[in-house]
Each structure stands twice: as C-alpha cells, then as structure tokens.
Design a protein around this nucleic acid. Structure first.
Length: 570
RNA sequence: GACUUGUUAGCUCAGCUGGUAGAGCACAUCCCUUUUAAGGAUGGGGUCCAGGGUUCGAACCCCUGACAAGUCACCA
C-alpha cells in the first residue's frame, strides 16, 4: 500500500531518520521511572519546595518556545500541563551541543513523548516550571496534532471542534481537549460510585450472556448473528433482565450487572446501537422499596461525584436530593390532558387519542395507546426527578399485577428532564401469569408489533421452580452520564460512538484519462496545450482534471513559451 | 426516513457577480538565555468531499452521490 503524506508528515518521517542516524532510539523499550506529575507539582511545590529538587516526569511535548540558547516548552502528562525550561549548556555540559541544538530544537516535535529529570522552580513571570537537567525521547509522533491554545483570559484559540473528526479520532480529541477527557473521567467515577453503593448493600456483581438464543427482557429489535459450530442463530442481547432473574431463582439476594445492550434501531442524539445499562434485582423487595433505593443511589452518586445534588442540564437545574415525587401514570394523564382513561377499552382510548391529536395505528393495544398519550402529552413536563408509577398491564409483560388494581402493574419509570432514565418493577414471579403474558405478546406480534417479546420457555421453567418476591431496576448509564455532565449528545459520553465507515483513502494510481494523455505525450514529446486537449478528445472538465492530475504527479509540466502554453513530459 | 446546513492547507476559518487559492496558528530556514494563545525575519505547503454537466473559463452555477451536524419522524 502506498500512502500519501502531507508535507508535515513527511518532515516528521525525515526527522525520525535523522534521530536514528544520531544513534537515538525513537521508540525505546525501557521503562521510564516517573516520580512526579504536573498537577501535584503545581498544587504542592510552593508549600514543600524541598520535595521537588529531584523529579522525573514524562508526557507529551505540547509546545516549544525557543530563544537561542535557552527554551521553554510545555509538557503534558495525564494530570495536566507543566512548563519546562531547558538551557543549552545545562543539558549539554561538554563541547557537544547536539542534544540541544539538534535534538531538542529541531528533531523534537509537538506530540512527541519525552521524559525529563530536573528540579522545580518559579520563573520571573511566576510560573512553576521544571528546570531540565536530563532529556529523553520516549516515543516519536509522526502526525501533527491540532494546536489548541488558550490565552490569559481562558479563551480557546483554534479549538479542535469538528464532531466527525473528534469522534473518529477520539484519541486526538482526548489529547487536545481536556474538557472531553473530564467527561469520561466523570463517567468512570459515576459507575464506580454506583458499584460501591451496591456492594455496600452486599449485592453481587455478575456477568450474563451477551449472545442469547432468545433476545428477551425488553421490547426492541435485536441484532442477529450466527454461530457456525452450533449452526444456529444467536442474538445480541437487548436486555439482561431474564438472566438476572434466573440468578435470583438460584438463590442470590441481590445481583447487578453493568451491561452493554444492543438494539437494531435508529441512531440520533440519544440513541447509539450499543449502549450501557445497569440492571439490579433484589429479592424480597417491591417497587416501593426500589423507588427509595433508586433515589438514595442517585443522591449518593451526585454527592460523591459532583459534590452536590444540584445539576445543570441545558437550561434546567435538576435536583437529585431524595425523595422524588411519585405520580401514577393515569393521574399524570388526567392532570395534563383532562381525560380520565382509567378502565377504558381500546376503542375509547382511540377516541381520546383522536381528540388529543395523537396518531394511532391498528397494531396498538391498550398499553401502547396509553403509553403514546403519556409520551406525547405528559412526559416532557417532568423536569425534576419524578417516579411515574403503575403502568397498564399490557405494556409491562414482565411486571407483577398491581396489588390494588389488576389492570395495572407495579412498575415505575424515573423521569428526568422530560426523558425516561430508569425503569423498575415488582417482578412478576407467577409462572402461570408469566406464560400468559408471553402469549399475549405473541398475539401482539401477530398483529404486527415487531417489538413484541419472544416466549422464553426456559425462563418460565425457572419461575416454575420458584422465584422469591423481587424488585428489579434498570438505568441507562449513558443517559445518566449525559445528565450529570451536561452533555446533549450521547456521542459525547461514548468514547467511540458508532459511525459509518470512513471514506477510502484516495488512490495514487493514474486513471484512464491520465494514461491516455500520457501516451500521446510520450509519442509526441512536447505539445501545445490546446492541440493536446483537442487530440485527447476529453471534455473541458475531464481535461482539466486530467492535466491537473498529471502535473500533480510530476509526470508533465505546463510552461509558457512566448504566447503559447506548452506541455512537456518530465 | 424527511428537511436544513456544512465539507477549502496539519488545525480553525475567509474566499465578492464565475476569471486559475487566502489568513492565523502549525511546518521549514535564520536571529534571540526567564518566555507564555501570538518574539522577529523569510519561505514552503491545496484532488477546494467525489463524479458528471453548463461555460472561453467552476471552490463558486446545475444534477447525482458520500460523509457529518442540526431539526423532525420512528424507537421499552
């Protein structure tokens, strides 16, 4: 494969050769002992100067300011940036000034990893810096990074902002945009904060299959794949609910999993085909307990990770301090539409939808119709964390019937900023009821609902052995992270959001037109431009492209002789 | 899936009514021992997303396509 390098890339490759020629290994194998980092030095040097007499630090070179025999440069490690000061005669005490004049000044580029040893001091301008006594190249960078600069007022210049480039080259984004890195650090902290919250309760973190013969536990279109040895279809999981409940059957008191789920649906600001969900199931609990558990968890996480329960998201301030409001879905509909839909049959609900200007179709049953009314008319009103409870039975086939009303289920969804964040049930543990619900789903699917659930007979069998009363909850981690980091797009909280493949690299081979013109030139030697154009028989556009291609590849050149443009082979 | 907008140097962006491509940073060469987004001077660097059309002439106008972003639709 032949690659085309930009001028700057070519310069760096040449530089690499020069480094090697000087006997320097641009990619040394040995470990580099580090005893300090940028953040720590900046935070503690003033108070404790003696500790910073002999430090060793490593990172990327992020900027050079050369002033003759001395220079300043920026070093960036995982904790931040620090300035380094290099004086020629200090790192080159003998007559040989190569390390400074050649290696540092000319052969080190922005983006290279270097290690420096030296001592910390404060410059005349008052910046804490490292006075370098020893400089080591740790890894050469062959591609130029975008140069993002920040001025004294904190204003960013030439920011690297193009979303496509940022997502496709997340590594560059992370190197250059500290605020992006911070989002992902926060994401990690949110997850570990949740994990320790669950562990403190004594619940067990588990792993369940991602490849499933029956994709269950949610209403969604799955990805399908094929196992060769078994010669059978397998699906990427859309949820892990049914497996976690099997573990409750098996006797664990509480199990949870941070799971990647996969749904073969559209992509937009809040949907990525693979996404992370945390599901937890706890025995001997119900959904009332789970509401308290959920609000306590969110209060805990926001306190621990953000140091506050108040979160700004877009133009809204959201308060995660428990407790949260609890609103039955039918009450929410009554409040926001004026219609009391309790006990309504499908036909009556359709009538209500019509009056509310909500589109319906034949495949929609009672559950979907109610869900539609709520989604259209109510959902967006719930900005502050709110538990919407007691959903209709038909839209919750894995959820236990409501203890007071058999048409409803003991289910809640947690709404935040008008969006669903978490979903929880008092789990259905009656195997006979469960099988009937699955069969109802089958009818829905026959009616054309392509998201209705499959019947999972092994799951029914597990329930037949007996599952204790259990409550379960699932929470979308990506969306939670979006809320807590004030990001409006899911792509900003995923390191590598799904993208279409990149365009193919351009070829350097000549196309047919170029070959044709080249043949004519080879035969004739030197020709007048308009004559050659006519002879080639190409359209204006094609001629233009072709001759530009040839001159670019240095195969032909155009020159002006008197008043005529001549084309020659090179 | 629909609509809107965008795609020009390594990065951020200009580019007039169609007349052969511009800036800042970065890069290269030279000068400079405490500077700080940007010291000074000089210079190099382009498949103007791709393909086709109109035109004497296209980065610019027209058509088709690719990719992205935004809005909407769809989506427990």
């Amino acid at each position: 494969m032949s690659r085309v390098f930009s001028e700057q890339e070519q310069v760096r490759r040449d530089t690499l050769k020069k480094i090697t020629a000087l006997g320097i290994d641009a990619y040394p194998a040995a470990k580099y002992e580090v005893n300090a980092n940028a953040k720590d030095i900046k935070a503690n040097y003033e108070r404790n100067k003696l500790d910073y007499k002999n430090i060793s630090i490593a990172g990327r070179l992020m900027g050079k300011r050369i002033m003759g025999k001395a220079s300043f440069a920026e070093l960036k490690d995982s904790t931040g940036r620090i300035q380094i000061y290099i004086s020629r005669d200090e790192i080159c005490p003998t007559e040989d000034k190569t390390l400074y004049n050649e290696v540092f000044k000319k052969l080190l580029d922005i983006g290279d990893f270097i290690g420096v040893k030296g001592y910390v001091f404060t410059t005349q301008v008052g910046e804490i810096s490292i006075h370098v006594t020893e400089l080591t190249l740790l890894s050469k960078s062959l591609k130029p990074l975008p140069i993002v600069k920040e001025d004294a007022e904190g204003k960013v210049h030439d920011a690297f902002t193009d979303p496509e480039l940022r997502y496709r080259r997340r590594y560059v984004d992370l190197v250059v945009n500290d605020h992006v890195k911070d989002v992902f650090i926060k994401r990690s902290k949110i997850i570990s904060s949740m994990r320790s919250f669950f562990n403190n309760y004594g619940y067990l973190e588990v792993e369940t299959p991602i490849l499933q013969p029956i994709p269950g536990g949610a209403a969604a279109r799955p990805f399908k794949t094929h196992h060769n040895a078994l010669d059978m279809p397998l699906y990427l999981r859309i949820a892990n609910e049914l497996y976690l409940k099997r573990l409750i059957v098996g006797g664990f008191d509480g199990v949870y999993e941070f799971a990647k789920d996969f749904r073969n649906e559209g992509m937009d600001r809040t949907h990525n085909p693979e996404f992370t969900v945390m599901e937890i199931y706890v025995a001997y609990k119900d959904y009332h307990w789970m509401m308290e558990f959920t609000e306590k968890m969110l209060e805990h996480v926001t306190t621990e990770v953000l140091g506050s329960n108040e979160v700004t998201f877009a133009e809204n301030k959201i308060n995660f301090k428990a407790p949260y409001a609890r609103v039955p879905i039918l009450e929410a509909i009554k409040t926001h539409t004026g219609f009391d839909v309790a006990g309504m049959k499908e036909a009556e609900l359709r009538e209500v939808c019509k009056k509310l200007d909500i589109e319906t179709d034949e495949s929609m049953g009672v559950g979907k119709l109610i869900d539609e009314i709520f989604g259209e008319k109510c959902e967006h009103h719930y900005i502050q964390p709110t538990f919407i409870t007691d959903y209709p039975k038909e839209m919750s086939p894995l959820c236990k019937k409501h203890r007071d009303n058999p048409e409803l289920t003991e289910r809640f969804e947690l709404m935040i900023n008008g969006k669903e964040l978490a979903n929880a049930y008092t789990e259905l543990n009656d195997p006979i009821d469960q099988l009937e619900r699955f069969q109802d789903q089958l009818k829905l699917s026959e009616k054309g609902d392509d998201e209705a659930m499959f019947i999972d007979m092994d799951f029914v069998r597990a329930l037949e052995y007996g599952m204790p009363p259990t409550s379960g909850m699932g929470i979308g981690i990506d969306r939670l992270v979006m809320f807590l980091t004030n990001q409006q797009s899911i792509q900003e909280v995923l390191f590598f959001p799904q993208m279409k493949p990149e365009k193919k690299a351009p070829t350097v081979e000549l196309n047919d037109n170029e070959k044709l013109v080249l043949e004519i030139l080879k035969k004739e030697g030197s020709l007048e431009l308009s004559f050659l154009k006519e002879k080639s028989g190409l359209s204006n556009k094609q001629w233009d492209k072709t001759i530009k291609g040839l001159t670019k590849n240095k195969l032909a050149q155009v020159s002006k002789v008197d008043e005529n443009l001549m084309i020659d082979l090179i």
